[in-house]
Every structure is written in structure tokens, then in C-alpha cells.
Amino acid sequence: MNRFDYVRARTIAEAVAAATEPGAAYLAAGTNLLDLMKGGVTRPARLVDVTHLPDLDRIDRLPEGGFRVGALVRNSDLAYDTAFARAHPSVAEALLSGASAQLRNAATVAGNLMQRTRCPYFYDPASACNKRQPGAGCEAQGGETRLHAVLGWSEHCIATHPSDFCVPLVALDAAVEIAGKDGTREVPLEAFHRLPGDAPERETVLEAGELIVAVRLPAAAAAFSGHSRYLKIRDRTSYAFAVVSAAASLRLDQGRITEGRLALGGVALKPWRARAAEAVLYGAEPNEHIFRQAADAALAEAKPSGDNAFKIELARRLIVRTLTRAAAGTPERMPALPASAFEETLHA
């Protein structure tokens, strides 16, 4: 029987205590979780509603620079926060390229990190899925795999993480502030999501009861604000998950890249930081040649998990395009179609 307890937590400590029990899940906007519950994909025994926790809906500038974004800040509120969007334009652009306006108005920062894959076999309770039922097998393999992973997948799971928001965040060294029963800890976002390996049911490093309370962007991240872009390829112009997406941030000095950041979305079970590509960019002149080298480095380990080899070549080209756009500079205004291939002149 799909009965569950509902607990409305008043303090973080109360929330953590309530969620430490097996089968508990945190509920924020529920834009993903409630669908999963209705579809019989997940059946939490207890929902701990955190939407009434105090102060988690704040966007704070930190004294040492940087931002601390509360876990309950809505996607729209963050994207339209002028100071934040100015400092981190690629993050704002990624947020505005996701879902629909209605969903962005509801969805939260922490919920975005915690959203589940869109693999159709995960959503179909009649299909075998190691994420849903460890050891059951992965029926996606040999099935409809056009949008599945090309990096970091295993024989146990070929799903992808669907977030846009996380892609520029991981590029900018964001960290996740986590509260647990023994206090708080901070984990780099890059280490927050796990690759599937042989335990795809374990999606993050969160321990039982742990709660995301904030996402932090270091002061150094704002140094990329003049050259930060997010670009998202999708099967329709808006309201679609990424086929492949890329976030690129550059620091340029006297015609050289002093630091480059690159991450990919839609290619793996986590937002994919392309460190090998960043190494190629370091100290180089920003030009198509070096961007292609960076793209090759980023995809060096890629292999199709099914009928999706095109994503590897698409990701390569997307990296070149996104780096080109980043090098050209962040636009003065948010494009009308954020993160779209159909905005602006191509710099080919």
C-alpha cells in the first residue's frame, strides 16, 4: 500500500531527524518527486516537507565574495536576481533554458540537484531498472537509447542526469552545503553526484537524513562573468531536456586564456566536468583550433551506450560553439531564447 507519513519540519534539525529513517524523502516543490510517486516509480514511506524551513529561500552575498544560494530558492527567483545573474550569467542562462516558466516558478535549487534521470525505463515500472530495483538489470540497453549516456556509464546503468543548472555550476566549482545529524559539511558539486558503477541506485553522496541547505559559488567564479555561456541542444526549441548541453567559462588576458572551465550536460549520470579539456585551454589563444582540441580531449573517453553515437560528435561541435560564444563575451542582455542555438550570429 502506498501509504506515507507526511512531516512538516520547522527546523533543519527536525527535518534531518525526521528524514533519517529508511524510506524517507525530502519534499520541496515536488515537480519531479510527485510525478514519480504518482507513476509508482518511487514509494517513499515518509515525506519530510522542507518548504517551511526558515531562511533557506535567501540569496546571500558572502563576506569573502561569492554567493550562497539557499536550497529553497526558486529557479526563476535565482535566474532573475540581478546581482547573481550578472556575476554568473551562464547559470542564469541555464536556469532559464530549463523546463517551462510554470515549473521554474516552483522548482527549487536543491530539487534541481536531486532530480532523477529521465530514462524512460526508469519511469516505466514494468521495465527492469537497477536504479529502481538494485540488481534487476537495465532494460534500457538494447532498447530506446537515443538520448542515453556516452560518458561514465556502466553496464548497470546508461542513464543521464537531466539538469541544466548543474552544468555551469559544476564548471564554476560550486559546492553543496549539507546538513546532517552531526552538523554541516560541504561537498564540491563535482563530487556530489555519483557515476553509476555497480550501484546506480546510489545517485549522490548524501547519507541518510542529510539535507542540502545551500549551494555556494566561490568568489573566484565571478571572475568568469564576462565570458560565460551555456548552450543547450534540444529536440524542440523550448521545453525539452537537453540532447547535449555545454557550459563554458573563460578568463582572458592579453589574448590568452588564463583559465577555462567546461562542463557537459546530457552525456552522463552527472554534470560532467571536462577537466582534460580545461588543461588544453590553459594559456592558449582562444581560436577554433584550440577549441577543437579541447573538444577532442573532453570526449576522448566517450563511447556510445546504444543508438547514440551521434551525441559524441554533437557534443564535440557544441563544445567548440560554446567556447566560441564564451570567448566572444557574455551578451549584455539575456537572449530571448536562453541557451538556444538560434540566438546570435555564429562565429564560425
Binding site: A126, S127, R236, T237
Partner: peptide
């Protein structure tokens, strides 16, 4: 089975299309 039996994944055009 149809694997995309929902309007999130069974695409129809949106205004921007």
C-alpha cells in the same frame, strides 16, 4: 510498450517552435 507515453517526452511543438 510505448516508452514516451506523456507530454513531456512525446513532443508536440511549443510556441517557440
Amino acid at each position: 510498450r510505448v516508452m514516451n507515453p506523456n507530454l513531456g517526452e512525446y513532443h508536440v511543438p511549443v510556441n517557440a517552435d
